[in-house]
Write a protein that binds this DNA or RNA. Structure first.
Ligand SMILES: [Mn+2]
Ligand SMILES: [Mn+2]
Ligand SMILES: [Zn+2]
Ligand SMILES: [Zn+2]
Lengths: 145, 145
DNA sequence: ATTGCAAATGATAATCATTATCATTATTAT
DNA sequence: ATAATAATGATAATGATTATCATTTGCAAT
């Protein structure tokens, strides 16, 4: 099993791109962070180690990380794209609290199978999907009444 | 069974808002259009009938139409919000072709039930969800090979 | 080492859908 | 009629992301 760094470096080589300190730092920082993270949040962390690093580079490298298969985009519909680990972190969908924003990764293999079947029934070949379940968590429900 | 216009007018009254020609025209135009439509697309149509109408009004009235329960937002992730009918048009999710953009409304009651169950298993009370299935339609698959 | 070239970076401007602002106009209540 | 309130349209602002471009860096061939 290859490490994330190896996978990223192989991707760079395959695309004739160079390994740079900025790319290394951004990848490392992203990998250390276990929760969803936005480009701006990542930029704020990375800036502490290298204050000269520009935020355009963070956007650029995040895109590379996604292309290399190490990250996956999470669009919660608030206008900010977030990124989560996608290697050794199997596919899951998201359960999001409308009260406090708490997010939980969830997976249901029956739903996944039915999604494929629905798509096929319309002649589609399913490549991917997005499923966001919105509601109120236990804490937020208690707080309301 | 109340008409859409009645529902909208009742909503306006309840909120102490006024019935205006602009609101009437925008609602009518939206209702006549059966497919998903963006604010800008709707503005282009409405402008033909009333060239003095501003696009800010279209955004404002679309929001009212959603609040009144007559429309539902569709976010296909391309940065443009679209709106579809939500009255006498039962809930459905979307199957989207990554090749040509073709969109099909789909519904699977088993998936819907399982979504509720997954949420409950984490103590959440499900209020709504988004599910987008992406793939390639029959035409686009043929075209590729 | 030196030169030449492609790629990378950082600063900054541009983009673009959506919102906010605000002066003007229209509607309602008194 | 008068005052109060709401609605509109024009326009500016917003904010995340992307494009641009001058400068710097890494690498290769001489
Ligand atoms: Mn997640
Ligand atoms: Mn639809
Ligand atoms: Zn909550
Ligand atoms: Zn297609």
């Amino acid at each position: 099993m290859k490490s994330e760094k190896e996978i990223f470096d192989n991707y760079l080589i395959k695309k004739n791109l160079r390994e740079t300190p900025q790319r290394g730092l951004i990848l490392d920082t992203f990998l250390k962070h276990e929760e969803h993270i936005s480009a701006e949040q990542l930029y704020d962390i990375v800036k502490k180690r290298d204050p000269s690093l520009g935020q355009a580079t963070v956007y650029r490298v995040l895109k590379l990380i996604v292309e290399a298969g190490l990250a996956r985009e999470v669009d919660l519909g608030d206008g900010v794209m977030r990124y989560e680990h996608n290697y050794n972190h199997p596919h899951h969908d998201h359960l999001v609290c409308r009260g406090c924003g708490k997010t939980i990764g969830v997976f249901d293999s029956v739903i996944e199978e039915l999604q494929k079947r629905v798509a096929e029934s319309y002649g589609f070949e399913l490549t991917d999907h997005e499923m966001y379940l919105y509601g109120f968590c236990e804490n937020c429900r208690k707080r309301k009444q």
